[in-house]
Nucleic acid binder design. Structure first.
Length: 728
DNA sequence: ATCCAGTAAT
DNA sequence: ATTACTGGAT
């Protein structure tokens, strides 16, 4: 046995470097890290060295001697192949250059390795090595507050080691900083094994190299890539907030045509900016982009902010966006951590906690910062995001193609589905309300909700919460009286049913009471409109999903599933669709040119994920709705069979001389209902003419048409424009 | 239906 | 620390 000595892989150069350093320190310059100890420690170390060279006994600084050679790290690394794509294994981290130089070699640091030293000396050595590395690599010196718990505690523990080394030895130390040295403590006598890296973040840099190789080969060609122009990058980053590349891309191109420069944007009217944003959502982004443009233009010389901190001060620019722009355009060493990066990083590191939690986020950011290669800071950030978007997807990651496959901790543990860990969601707040359904001569009372707020602008039945311990029916009656003047509200309504609905942050339990009135009672004026709407026309009113289900129950024949309804939302029996003719309403997601051909076709098909077993778009277009891919297969799982084929072929039934305004509803059809896909099955709506991609199926309203007439197109056209519906 | 996303406002 | 904002994927 070799006793406490653990320097199995010390490298000659490093040894030379360290010994040279130690010798040079003979004068006893105080170590900045441990000024009060270094002198003694250094003298001791030098003495030990002298002893060792005289007697041949081993010391902590002894080279691994010849026995180390046989199973050297280089051999390990060789086994794995010199061009291992993912550099995560222990062996590869210790890969070293040919150990040509001996102890007397020039004190150059190359390669990495372990040195066994006394606990006292270890911190100074690490510091020294880090300094050297910083000098050599130009890495940013570590400064600023160290992350609180870890290093402080461990450095303290280290410094407090008794000279005998018998005190508690931290199981693994890690010297904070930018990757200059790592410290791990092993051994009974408290010898410290110092792993010295050649470059700041040497280990991480190899991940970076593999990543960038992959990125260079597989990156998508996106309009904002290429020249890292601040304006282009900034606009694209704002557009890409909460928005996928495919959706943002056409907007980006149009936007840059309209406002090619910062000055053009700053000079624009907000209305024009918003107009170009229509359909993208999150309109605050556009307003803030515009505001920020004016702020930048007002700077002296309209100079771009350069640092992430400066960008951060602009409206609409958060930590992610600031880091992305600063790194891509101005070479700042700041990781841009978005959802993709969090996912990729959490998996690679095998984070078992929510990567958004501060601790994990710090760890991730530090790791990334160490990995960022100085020459390609922006590319590194983009490559990470690209990896997350293309391969390291939330579901079904394509690990086989991933450059980090071998080193990925989540992959190794078979945990890619569990990582990133998501924080447990709190149980949603429970909310209970009572609603009033007032029927009179085939009409029902509905009201529109305020434009702002939850389900803004949608129509629904009056509802109220319970006051104190009053009966639920009383609460419903109160809601009724608020909108209509009727004596009937004094009566107790009949309980129609109880509906539940889950919203994003609360779950609603709605008790619905029904009143039958002789005739439509006079409406009370209110801030929002109310109407006695014909039951048959309810389909023309945009409603929330919950109110829609109640409306469906009103229209459904008694005893039908929808009529019984309440409990589970009462859809029709699974797998069956209502028969008959119906129209589909498409609400335009953005402005559209006039429709000059009445027979405009709109083709819908399922997302086509398996490229290899499906036809191209032309093949899709060639199929007919009826031939096997239509209603029959719709219950089938996504990936089985030819279900990626055409689902329906819809025809716009009207000409439109005037342009279509965003949000306007267009009637399509009529169609046999069995040809109409469910909204959720439709992830793509294409027309054969450009400009119609943004058409969106709004409401097929499958529940209503069975009673009475389907709302004719004319009537629909006369309706107030359908606001955007948001079922949450 | 449920989950996910970055920023600002609270 | 939560939530609104909006749309897409599954």
């Amino acid at each position: 046995m070799r006793g406490p000595v653990r320097a199995r892989r010390a490298l000659c150069q490093q040894r030379g470097e360290v010994l040279g350093w130690l010798a040079g320190r003979g004068a006893g310059r105080p170590s900045p890290l441990h000024p009060h100890r270094s002198e003694r420690a250094v003298r001791r170390a030098v003495a030990a060295r002298a002893t060792a060279s005289r007697t041949g006994t081993r010391t902590g600084f002894e080279p691994p001697a010849d026995r180390g050679r046989g199973r050297s790290v280089a051999a390990n690394a060789g086994r794995a192949g010199p061009h291992r794509s993912a550099a995560a294994g222990r062996g590869s981290a210790l890969r070293r250059p040919p150990a040509a130089a001996g102890p007397r070699a020039a004190p150059r640091l190359r390669g990495c390795g372990n040195l066994s030293v006394s606990p006292r000396l270890a911190p100074a050595l690490v510091l020294h090595s880090r300094r050297t590395l910083e000098r050599r690599t130009g890495a940013r010196p570590f400064r600023g507050p160290r992350p609180p718990a870890e290093p402080a505690l461990r450095r303290g523990a280290l410094a407090d080691q008794p000279a005998s080394g018998r005190g508690p030895v931290p199981a693994r130390g890690h010297v904070a900083g930018n990757g200059g040295g790592r410290l791990s403590a092993r051994g009974r006598r408290g010898r410290m094994v110092v792993k010295v890296g050649t470059r700041a973040g040497g280990r991480e840099r190899r991940w970076a190299a593999a990543l960038l190789r992959w990125y260079d080969r597989h990156r998508r060609d996106l309009p904002w890539r290429g020249r890292a122009e601040p304006y282009a990058v900034w606009v694209s980053e704002i557009m890409l907030q909460q928005t996928q590349v495919a959706a943002a891309r056409p907007y980006y191109e149009r936007f840059l045509r309209a406002f090619p420069t910062l000055r053009a944007l700053a000079a624009a009217e907000e209305q024009d900016v918003l107009r170009l944003w229509e359909g993208l959502g999150y309109y605050a982004r556009a307003r803030q982009l515009h505001r920020a443009a004016r702020l930048i233009a007002a700077r002296p010389g309209a100079a771009w902010p350069r640092t992430a901190a400066e960008w951060r001060r602009l409206p609409g620019v958060g930590p992610y966006t600031a880091a992305a722009i600063a790194s891509i355009c101005f070479g700042e060493r700041t990781p841009a951590v978005d959802g993709n990066v969090r996912r990729v990083g959490a998996r690679a590191l095998g984070l078992r906690t929510d990567p958004r939690a501060p601790r994990a986020a710090r760890r991730l950011a530090r790791w990334l910062e160490r990995a960022m290669p100085p020459a390609r800071l922006g590319d590194f950030n983009q490559a990470l995001m690209e990896l997350g978007a293309l391969l390291c997807r939330p579901r079904r990651p394509a690990c086989e193609r991933c450059p980090w496959c071998r080193g990925c901790a989540a992959r190794a543990a078979g945990q890619t589905a569990q990582i990133p860990v998501r924080p447990p969601r709190r149980a949603p707040r429970r909310v209970a309300l009572a609603a009033a359904v007032a029927l009179a001569g085939g009409r029902v009372l509905i009201q529109r909700r305020p434009r702002r707020g939850l389900l803004g602008g949608l129509w629904g039945f009056p509802a109220a919460g319970r006051r104190g311990a009053e009966p639920w029916a009383a609460a419903a009656a109160r809601a009724l009286r608020r909108r209509v003047r009727t004596a009937a509200a004094a009566d107790r309504g009949a309980l129609l049913g109880v509906w539940r609905h889950g919203y994003s942050h609360f779950s609603l339990r709605l008790r619905v009471y029904r009143w039958r009135l002789q005739r439509p009672a006079p409406l009370r004026p209110g801030s929002e409109p109310a109407e006695w709407a014909p039951l048959a026309a309810l389909g023309a009113y945009p409603m929330s999903a919950l109110d829609r289900r109640i409306a469906a129950a009103l229209c459904a024949p008694p005893g039908s599933a929808a009529g019984r309804g309440a409990a589970r939302g009462a859809a029709r029996p699974a797998g069956k669709k209502p028969e008959g003719a119906a129209r589909v309403f498409l609400s335009a997601k953005s402005g559209l040119p006039p429709i000059d051909r009445a027979e405009e076709s709109v083709v819908c098909w399922r997302p086509n994920e398996q490229k290899e077993n499906s036809d191209d778009a032309g093949g899709n277009l060639g199929r007919r709705c009826g031939d096997g891919a239509g209603g029959g297969s719709r219950g089938a799982p996504r990936d089985s069979g030819p279900s990626d084929a055409l689902l329906g072929r819809l025809c716009l039934s009207e000409r439109r001389a005037a342009p279509v305004v965003r949000g306007e509803t267009l009637a399509v059809g009529p169609l046999r209902v069995s040809q109409v896909p469910e909204p959720r099955e439709l992830s793509l709506l294409h027309s054969l003419r450009p400009g119609f991609e943004r058409l969106r199926l709004s409401r097929a309203q499958p529940h209503l048409p069975r009673v009475g007439q389907v709302a004719p197109a004319r009537q629909n056209a006369g309706q107030p424009r359908m606001p955007r519906t948001n079922s949450r």
